[in-house]
Nucleic acid binder design. Structure first.
Lengths: 233, 233
DNA sequence: TGTATCTGACCGACCGGTCAGATAGACTCG
DNA sequence: CGAGTCTATCTGACCGGTCGGTCAGATACA
C-alpha cells in the first residue's frame, strides 16, 4: 500500500465519477469505461477497487445517503425553531436546478434498482429510516412548542418526506425545470408548512405566499433564510 | 389486412406482455425476446408492430396513463362528495400489494426514462396534467362545500398527488411491502384528509384512525368504501 | 527484488434491429 | 369449387456492436 489513504481516495474519485455519469445516463446505460474515463483512470481500476458494477453503485448510493443525512442533520441543527428547521431542509434539498436534476435523476434510478434488488432496497430503507428520524425530531419539537398540530409524529414525518419526493417527481417532468425551480422550492416550503402548522396560530402568515416573512410565533427575528453549505447560484 | 382490429389486438397483447416484463425486470433489462415470449409470439413480431424498443415503451406508458386517467375519472365520478372522492382515489391507487408493486415498479422505471429522454418526459407531463385536473376538481368541490380549506386549488392538487407518489416510494423500500400494504393505504387516506380537511369541521373524525368512519359532514351514510373496478384480493 | 497498483487487450454473452424466406388467409379466374 | 396468386403476417437465424468481467503483463514505489 503506497499510502494508507490511497485506496479511500481512489474509491472516492470513482464514486464521484459514477455519480456524474449515472445522473446523466442512468445506471444501466453507464459503462465501467465511462466511469473510468470520467475519473481519469483506466477501466481495470474500477474493478480493482470494486467487486462489480453493482458493488460500485451500492457503494455510491450508500455514500450519497450518508452524505445527505449528515448535511440534513447539520442544517437542522443550525436552524432554530421547528419552522426554521423545515425551511432549512427545503433550502438544502433544493440547492439549485442543476444539482437538483443530477441528484434526483440518480435518485429515481436508484429507486428503480431498490424496487427490484434486495441489496439496493436495504440501502433505501436506511435512507428513509434516517430521514424519518430527522423529520420526526423537527415535528416533535414543533408539537412540543405548540406550533405544529398534535398528531402521530412518525406518520407526519413520513408524509413530510413524501411531499418532498412527490414534488420532485413532478418537477422532473416539467417542460422547463430550470424556469420553475424557484416556484417549486417556494411551493414546497409553503405546502409543508401548511401541512404542519397548527391552525389558528400562524395561518395569517401563510397567505402572503412570501416564505421570507414566515416565522414561528414568539421568535422575533430568525437568522434570515437558513444558511446551508453546498448551496449554489 | 386479415381483420380490421387484428393490429390493435396484437399491439395490446404486446403492451400487456411488456408491462408485466418491465414490472419484473425493468426497462433496460427486458429484451424484445422476453416480451415476445411472454406474448406468445416470435421476436420479429415486436418490431413488426413497433418501430423500436423505445417506441414500444412509449406506447405502453401512454396507454397505461390513459387507462389510469380513465379509471380515476370513473372512480371519482361514482363517489359522492369530496371526502368520498378522495377515498375512492386512494382505493383505486392501492388496489392490492401485487398490483401496486407491478404498477409502481413500472412507474419508477418510467420516471427514470422521463427524466432523461424528452419523448418520455412529455408523456409524464401529460400524466401529471391529467392527474392535476382530476385532483383539482375534487379540491374545488371540497372548497365550494366548505369541507376543505380554502387555498390555491392547483397547488393543493399537486401536493395531494405528491403525497400519493412519495408514500409509494417509501412503500417500495419497505422490508415487507405485503405486510404493511394496508397500513400504507390507511395512512395515505388519513394523511390526505388531514391535509385537505378544514380544521374545526370534521377533525374529530380523524382521531379514531379508522378511515371507515370518516365521512363528509352533512352526508349521513356514504355508499360504503367506494367500489372500484379492477380491484383484486 | 517484491508487491501494490494500474493498463488495456481480450473473451463470452447478450441484445436491438434486419431480413430472407415461410405461412396462410383472401381474392381472383376458370 | 379448386388452382393459382397475392400479400399481410409471422418466424428465427443472423449481424454488428456493446459491455461486464478477466487477466497477463507493465509500472513504479518501498
Amino acid at each position: 500500500m503506497r499510502s494508507a489513504t490511497h485506496e479511500a481516495e481512489r474509491r472516492l474519485v470513482l464514486r464521484k465519477a459514477a455519480f456524474r455519469e449515472v445522473a446523466e445516463r442512468g445506471f444501466s446505460s453507464v459503462t465501467l469505461e465511462d466511469i473510468a474515463v470520467r475519473a481519469g483512470v483506466s477501466k481495470g481500476v474500477t474493478l480493482y477497487y470494486f467487486d462489480s458494477k453493482d458493488d460500485l453503485f451500492r457503494d455510491l448510493f450508500s455514500w450519497l445517503i450518508d452524505s445527505i443525512h449528515l448535511r440534513m442533520r447539520d442544517a437542522v441543527a443550525a436552524a432554530e425553531g421547528p419552522v426554521e428547521k423545515v425551511r432549512a431542509l427545503v433550502a438544502l434539498i433544493f440547492p439549485s436546478p442543476s444539482r437538483n436534476r443530477a441528484f434526483f435523476r440518480a435518485y429515481v434510478d436508484f429507486c428503480g434498482l431498490a424496487a427490484r434488488k434486495e441489496s439496493f432496497r436495504q440501502i433505501g430503507e436506511r435512507f428513509y429510516a434516517g430521514c424519518r428520524e430527522i423529520d420526526r425530531g423537527i415535528v416533535e419539537e414543533g408539537m412540543r412548542r405548540g406550533v405544529f398540530i398534535l398528531r402521530d409524529a412518525g406518520e407526519t414525518a413520513s408524509t413530510l418526506r413524501a411531499i418532498f419526493d412527490g414534488l420532485m417527481l413532478q418537477w422532473l417532468m416539467e417542460k422547463d425545470p430550470e424556469a420553475c425551480f424557484e416556484a417549486y422550492r417556494e411551493r414546497c416550503e409553503r405546502e409543508l408548512l401548511h401541512y404542519l402548522l397548527s391552525p389558528g396560530r400562524p395561518v395569517e402568515l401563510l397567505s402572503p405566499g412570501r416564505p421570507g416573512e414566515l416565522l414561528a410565533p414568539g421568535r422575533p427575528e430568525p437568522p434570515e433564510t437558513a444558511r446551508i453549505k453546498g448551496r449554489k447560484r
